[in-house]
Design a protein around this nucleic acid. Structure first.
Length: 246
DNA sequence: AAGACTTTCAACCGCTTATGG
DNA sequence: CCCATAAGCGGTTGAAAGTCT
């Protein structure tokens, strides 16, 4: 007994999209907005499944997509966010306006992985390769899912998540990162540091002072803490009570 | 010039999560 | 709650383009 198909495959096109299909999808969404993806293909006169339409729109046709090469700053941001979030491409994409999860995932697999390997860094653990080889089971990623949170031990007992939970039994590991789009609409000409939501950082060049609430810390100390955290400048022990960013 | 090999990235697949009745 | 359905996500695939020999 298999999973029911998402659409009637006999009557849908597959493979690369034609210019005409693109035009139909664009004009339909312009006129009606992103509504129900399942019913969209029929309404737009497309022989595609809703999933395919959604993907095409999100990854290729959306007008706010940046396209083009990634900048050095974007590279470094992706690396930092990946070290923090792991393969949560949609979360990472949420921090890079104009970039899609698919694009970032592809870019990671084709460029950044190699870049890190050339630096002698294991792309999976973000630790030096020789260290990663000897401590292969150590992970610095923060877990999100129920299943992952159940992983609290390993053969050598050195899983960071386990030790964090041991040291901070009340820790809420739910990490909420707000999308930057709304801020960017009201804050023009932000420096790179502030574009990450890290206002008041010592590296801020635009001097935008803005409230960043991280639990009970003051905005400025919270921002500084968050910067250190994202910049992995901690002295090896993360202040796990400050992980929640709203 | 041409065939082999490698790289890139759009698109697909199947699973998980969210939502509504 | 439970179930059905839709949306979202991450891993994977494969065609096309690029590079090497």
């Amino acid at each position: 007994m298999g999973r029911s198909p998402c659409c009637e495959k006999a009557h849908t096109n597959k493979g690369a999209w034609t210019k005409e299909e693109d035009d139909r999808l664009i004009s339909y969404i312009r006129a009606h907005g992103e509504g129900c993806w399942r019913s969209l293909p029929k309404a737009a006169g497309l022989l595609r499944c809703g999933k395919s339409c959604r993907l095409r729109w999100i990854n290729y046709l959306r007008p706010d997509l940046k396209r083009g090469n990634f900048t050095e700053e974007e590279d470094e941001l992706i690396i930092k966010l990946h070290s923090l979030l792991g393969n949560k491409w949609s979360l990472i994409a949420g921090r890079l306006p104009g970039r899609t999860d698919n694009e970032i995932k592809n870019y990671w697999n084709t460029h950044i992985r190699r870049k890190l390997l050339n630096r002698g860094i294991d792309p999976a653990t973000h630790r030096p390769l020789n260290e990663a080889a000897t401590a292969a089971t150590v992970t610095t990623n923060i877990s999100f899912g129920k299943q992952e949170q159940q992983e609290t031990s390993s053969s050598n007992g050195s899983v960071v998540k386990g030790s964090i939970l041991e040291r901070c039994p009340d820790l809420n590991l739910e990490l909420t990162i707000s999308p930057p789009r709304q801020q960017q609409q009201t804050q023009k000409n932000l420096c790179f540091v502030c574009s990450l939501g890290l206002h008041n950082s010592k590296d801020c060049s635009c001097n935008v002072s803005n409230a960043v609430t991280v639990n009970n810390t003051t905005p400025s100390s919270a921002a500084a803490a968050a910067y250190d955290f994202l910049g992995m400048k901690t002295s090896g022990v993360w202040d796990c009570t400050r992980l929640e960013m709203k």
